[in-house]
Amino acid sequence: MKIIVDADACPKKVLNICQKTAVENDIEFWTVASFNHHIESPHHIMVGNNSQEADIRIANLCSGGDIVVTQDWGLAAVVLGRGAAALSPWGKIFRAETIDFLLEEREVKAKLRRAGGRTKGPGKRTKEDDKRFARSLQKLIEELSG
Rank of each mutant, 00 (worst) to 15 (best):
E104N: 10
R132P: 03
K20Q: 02
C18Y: 01
I67Y: 11
G74W: 07
K109A: 04
D66A: 09
G81Y: 10
K120T: 08
N49L: 11
K111A: 06
G83W: 04
P42G: 13
A77Q: 12
I39Q: 01
N25D: 06
D26E: 13
E128V: 11
F29T: 04
G83A: 01
R106A: 03
E142S: 14
F133A: 00
G48M: 09
T98D: 09
M1E: 05
D66W: 14
N25L: 05
E107M: 04
A86R: 04
L102P: 00
R57M: 15
I56K: 14
P42C: 13
A76G: 07
G121Y: 08
E143K: 14
R114M: 10
K2C: 03
S34T: 10
R82W: 03
Q52L: 12
H44P: 11
K13D: 07
G81W: 12
I141D: 05
I45N: 03
R95G: 00
Q19G: 01
I39W: 00
K12F: 03
I141F: 04
K127D: 13
V47A: 09
P11F: 07
K124D: 08
E105N: 10
N25M: 06
N36F: 10
K92F: 05
A86K: 06
T98Y: 03
K139P: 02
S51Y: 14
G48R: 13
P122C: 06
I67E: 15
A85I: 07
D66M: 14
Q138S: 14
N25E: 13
E128A: 15
A115Y: 05
L137D: 11
G117V: 09
H37P: 01
I45Q: 15
Q19F: 03
G117Q: 08
C10Y: 02
E40F: 06
R57V: 15
K13A: 10
N50I: 06
A96T: 08
W90L: 15
K13W: 00
V47R: 01
L140C: 02
D6P: 05
H38A: 14
V78D: 01
L112W: 01
V23Y: 12
C18R: 03
F29G: 01
A85Q: 09
R113Y: 04
S136A: 15
E53H: 02
A86D: 03
R113E: 06
K120G: 04
N50W: 04
A59W: 11
S63L: 10
S41W: 08
P11C: 08
A9G: 10
F94P: 04
L103P: 08
I39R: 00
K139V: 05
I58V: 06
Q19K: 11
A85W: 07
M46C: 14
R132Y: 02
P122W: 07
T98G: 05
G116V: 10
A96M: 09
I45W: 14
L144Y: 11
L80H: 02
G81E: 13
I4F: 03
N50L: 15
L61H: 03
K2Y: 10
R114P: 00
S63A: 15
S88K: 12
P122R: 10
W73D: 12
E40C: 05
G74T: 08
F101I: 11
R118T: 08
